[in-house]
């Protein structure tokens, strides 16, 4: 047992060498489009412009608050920065049928995917929803934020703008 713990510590230590801060590519996981077809998360792209990936669920109130708040500004955000939001639902089969009805009723214009068995959630090391990631034009993960407080979307957008200007991002 001690050996396992030791090795675990070594592995953690090794990770310190390897992790170049942020800036890693989106990991590969198979997720479902709303038309039932499957795609791999490592094919996400936005013509060199930033991408926001938001993990949410139909039963998660703060998640829907965040996506509602962004929806009001989304057109402006897209015009100003070309940013694209990808909403990944982690609803399991019990509630995943509600994803399309929620999205259409709310009129969200996001790209929406289903991660029914949470392969992508695990690959992205998401503990809880909402969890929001910012991806730069090269497809690298450069920022992430867990939880939502009213007004967080303004901070997120600040970071999108900073990203385009090449400035340092803030938490």
């Amino acid at each position: 047992m001690k050996k396992i713990i030791l090795l675990f510590v070594i592995a953690l230590f090794a990770s310190n060498f390897v992790v170049p801060g942020d800036g890693d590519k989106i990991p590969a996981a198979t997720i479902k489009k709303l038309d039932g077809s499957k795609i791999n998360s490592n094919t996400f792209s936005n013509d060199g412009k930033p991408i926001i990936i938001s993990f949410w669920a139909t039963w998660c109130k703060p998640c829907k608050k965040e996506l509602d708040a962004i929806a009001e500004e989304y057109e402006t955000w897209q015009k100003e920065t070309g940013v694209k939001l990808i909403a990944v639902s982690i609803d399991d089969i019990r509630s995943s049928a509600k994803v399309v009805t929620d999205v259409k009723t709310k009129g969200w214009k996001y790209e929406v995917y289903l991660d029914e068995n949470q392969d992508f959630k695990r690959a992205m090391n998401v503990n809880n929803v909402p969890h929001t990631f910012l991806i730069n034009g090269k497809g690298e993960i450069v920022w992430s934020h867990n939880s939502y407080t009213d007004g967080d979307e303004e901070k997120l957008y600040e970071n999108v703008k900073k990203l385009i200007k090449g400035e340092a991002l803030s938490h």
Binding site: L7, I10, A11, A14, S15, F17, V18, V19, P20, G23, D24, K25, P27, M124, N125, V126, N127, E140
Partner: peptide, 27 residues
Amino acid sequence: AFILNPFNFFAQEGNPIQDLGSSVHGN
């Protein structure tokens, strides 16, 4: 631990880690 060992894969000097297309993440 072998795979993660930085001296096996990542110790090439002056070679940025990202070029190797590798990453470590966790929670």
